[in-house]
Computed example of a mutant assay.
Amino acid sequence: MEKLPTANTKKEKTYLFEIHFLRAFACLLVVGVHVSATNYFMNGEKYTWFTYFLNQIGRFGTPIFAVISGFLLFYQLRMRNNFDLGYFFKSRMAKVIIPFFIWSLVYRFLLYYYDHQAFGNFWPEAEKVITGNSFYHLYFVLIVAQFYLIFPLLQKVLRTQSLVLIFTVISFIISYNLYGFHPDIKGGLGAFLASKSFMPIWIAYFAFGAFLAYFWEGIVKYATSRPWRMLLLALIISAGAVVEYTMHGYVSNRRLTNLANIPLLSIAIIGTFPLLSKWNFIKQPMVLIGKYSMGIYLVHPLILYLMARHLPEPYWDTRAILVMFAAVMVIAMIFIRIIQFIPFSTFIIPVPKVKKMKRSGVKKQAPEPIKQSA
Rank of each mutant, 00 (worst) to 15 (best):
G209I: 08
F208W: 08
A223Y: 09
T224C: 14
F208T: 05
Y176T: 14
S266Y: 03
Y292F: 15
G218Q: 09
I185L: 14
L276K: 00
G271F: 07
L298F: 10
R255I: 11
F211S: 01
A194M: 05
A210C: 14
N177G: 11
F208Q: 05
T257Y: 14
M286R: 10
K278W: 00
K278E: 12
T246M: 11
L189K: 03
K196Q: 14
I282K: 06
G218L: 01
V287Q: 13
G187S: 01
I185R: 02
L288C: 07
N253L: 01
Y205T: 09
T257W: 11
M199D: 03
T224Y: 04
Y205L: 07
L298G: 03
Y179M: 03
V242E: 08
W279S: 02
I219C: 09
I219M: 11
W202A: 10
M247L: 15
G190C: 05
S293E: 08
L259M: 07
A194G: 15
S195V: 04
G218I: 01
S197H: 08
Y292N: 15
A210Q: 05
A204T: 06
L232N: 00
Y250N: 13
R254K: 09
P183G: 08
F206N: 08
W216G: 00
M294D: 02
S225V: 00
R254C: 00
L265T: 01
F273W: 15
G271P: 04
I219K: 06
A268W: 06
I289W: 04
A194P: 04
L212M: 13
H182E: 12
V299F: 08
F211W: 09
N280Q: 14
I296W: 02
E244K: 12
L193G: 06
L232Y: 04
I270G: 04
I269L: 14
G240C: 02
P183S: 09
V299D: 10
I270Y: 04
